[in-house]
């Protein structure tokens, strides 16, 4: 089994605070992996490690290794842009740029050197189709992205990533700002996207983890307590702490 992403004894400190402790996780390609756990358990920190976003925070020290396709994700500025192209992040609140729909999606390709009109237009259309936005927005490409409804904004953010053809999509609570119907639509989209991309989702919504993911990891106090098939985690977890958390008895 070739894993898309793997960590080896990954540790992370914010100053004196230990946010991740010896995390060893293997993420399968073209599947949805969910990370669950209470607030402050380190799940978002782990997610941010995968595209080195923690480096933006002062006083962060990491140890251990992260492997993408079996190769270590290096420190230093050298590979960072390339890494972020391969591993994109979708955030909790949709965060389109204050630009038009088109310019939002075209942003990534332009950064990576695509300026020609026809190519760019094709890339934007493809990315909007990937999130099923094209039909709704093809006549509104010049409209400001911030004027779209929340679900479309979130889809647009996913399109913006899709435009640079990443391999991994990291999603940090991607539906927490959405209503149940929009949530269902985004989950449907995630299943669709998982045919091409490797998706890692962090969520507080355990039912969402149960619904969309094939494997689930439970984190507590910076440790990966249990990692396995989602059905096993929700039917018959092997660790008492996982059981207490998924049944709502934790804490």
């Amino acid at each position: 089994m070739e894993y898309k992403l793997r960590t080896e004894n990954l540790g992370l400190h914010y100053g004196d605070f230990c946010a991740l402790k010896d995390v060893n996780i293997s993420i399968r390609p073209q599947a949805i992996t969910a990370i669950i756990g209470p607030s402050g358990c380190g799940k978002s920190t782990l997610l941010r490690c995968f595209n080195r976003m923690n480096e933006l925070i002062a006083g962060v020290r990491t140890s251990g290794r992260i492997l993408l396709d079996g190769r270590a994700v290096h420190d230093g500025a050298a590979g960072l842009t390339q890494l972020r192209k391969r591993v994109g992040m979708v955030f909790q609140r949709p965060n389109p740029f204050p630009l038009s729909v088109f310019d939002n999606v075209a942003y990534g390709p332009r950064v990576h050197g695509m300026h020609k009109g026809a190519d760019l237009e094709a890339a934007v259309e493809k990315a909007l189709r990937a999130t099923a936005l094209w039909d709704a927005l093809k006549d509104k490409l010049r409209a400001p992205a911030l004027g779209l409804p929340a679900e479309q904004q979130q889809r647009l953010c996913i399109s913006r990533l899709a435009a640079v053809e990443p391999e991994v999509l990291l999603m940090d609570e991607p539906c927490s700002a959405l209503d149940p119907i929009a949530t269902e639509h985004i989950e449907e989209l995630m299943r669709e996207l998982a045919r091409r991309y490797t998706i890692v989702i962090v969520t507080h919504n355990m039912q969402q983890a149960a619904r969309v993911s094939s494997e689930t990891g439970f984190m507590l106090l910076g440790e990966l307590v249990e990692f396995g098939l989602t059905t096993a985690i929700f039917k018959n977890p092997s660790d008492k702490r996982t059981e207490d958390y998924v049944t709502g008895r934790y804490g």
Binding site: M206, Q207, A210, I233, F234, K235, N236, P237, T242, E243, V246, T247
Partner: peptide, 9 residues
Amino acid sequence: RQPVAGDLR
């Protein structure tokens, strides 16, 4: 309640 794990069983 959408019970899971031990509660569901």
